[in-house]
Every structure is written in C-alpha cells, then in structure tokens.
C-alpha cells in the first residue's frame, strides 16, 4: 500500500490529525477524508476555481495543493461560513441577488468573496469582476454574482 504522511491542520477552527497518501490533493483530502463536500472539484488544473478555500486567510485553489502541504496551516471551507441556522450575510446577499443556479461553483465564489471582503480594499464593480475571474460559472452569466459581492462589500446603495 501507499505510504501515508501524518499531518496536523486546523480546518474550520478545529485541529485535525490525519494520515494521508503523499499524492492526495488538498481538495480530495477535505472532501474524501474529512467529509467536507461543500468544496467541489471541477478541473484539477487550477483553472475553474470550484475548489477555492482559504489557506491562512488567502483564497487558494485546493486542487493545486497536496494534502501534506496543509500541515501546520489553517484552512477554511464553505462549511465555516454560516451560523448553525440560516445564512451568513454574504450567503444571504447571494440568495437575494439570485447569484446561483446549479450551485456547483457557489462555494468557490463565496470563499473568493470572503477573502476579498476581509482584505478591506475598496473595490469598484469592475474590480470585483476582475477579482472573480478565478472562478468559472456556466449558469448565471456572473452579473448577479457581481451584484451580490458588490452589495456585501459596498452596501446596498451601489448602482446595480
């Protein structure tokens, strides 16, 4: 059998100790080994952005990381966003703007937008468009996603 590597990683605020195959990528680790299936896998090439998570607060594509590289780091997935009941403000903004259809890409956008919101940067609508290019969506045409992120970061008053 394959050699396993021991890692300790903080996932959504909780420390986990796991043994993982050396060639397992981080998205497969989160999904298959920790059961955090909110993180999706769409291309395994770092292009589509479905697997975007926060690594030490920064949005990264978890299919481009190996699970052993997570050792000693903090990971946040879409499961960390909502309170026990209901939705977090960013998620509520997505719902109200009809910013999702099939929902497969949504966790990628939510984690990208979470990092954006935490950056404290001032972002125009066009800036947001550029920042979101790392995640693909085939359903919505993006406009409503941009609106949701814009409202979340800049407030309701911004032109839609």
């Amino acid at each position: 059998m394959e050699d396993l590597i021991e890692i300790t990683v903080t996932v959504n605020g909780r420390a986990v100790h796991e043994r993982v195959p050396a060639r397992m990528h981080a998205a497969d680790f989160l999904r298959g080994q920790l059961g955090l299936t909110g993180t999706h896998v769409g291309c395994e090439q770092g292009v589509c952005g479905m697997c975007t998570v926060l690594l030490d607060g920064e949005a990264v594509k978890s299919c481009l990381l190996l699970a052993p590289q997570l050792d000693g780091h903090e990971v946040a997935t879409v499961e960390s966003l909502a309170p026990d009941e209901g939705l977090a403000p960013l998620q509520q903004a997505f719902k109200e703007a009809h910013a999702l259809q099939c929902g497969f890409c949504t966790p990628g956008f939510l984690m990208t937008a979470t990092a954006l919101a935490r950056s404290g940067r001032t972002l125009s609508r066009d800036d947001i468009r550029e920042e979101l290019t790392g995640v693909l969506c085939r359903c919505t045409g993006y406009e409503n996603i941009v609106t949701a992120v814009d409202r979340h970061i800049n407030g309701e008053h911004v032109d839609v």
Partner: peptide
C-alpha cells in the same frame, strides 16, 4: 434550492461516498 447550496450542503453525485 439556495440554502443548501450556499451552505455547502448540496448533494452532488461525487458527494455520495
């Protein structure tokens, strides 16, 4: 459909394990 998808609680086929 939204709440489950937004919370990462959708069930896509690859989520069945």
């Amino acid at each position: 459909e939204d709440d489950r998808l937004l919370r990462g609680d959708g069930r896509f086929t690859d989520d069945v394990d």
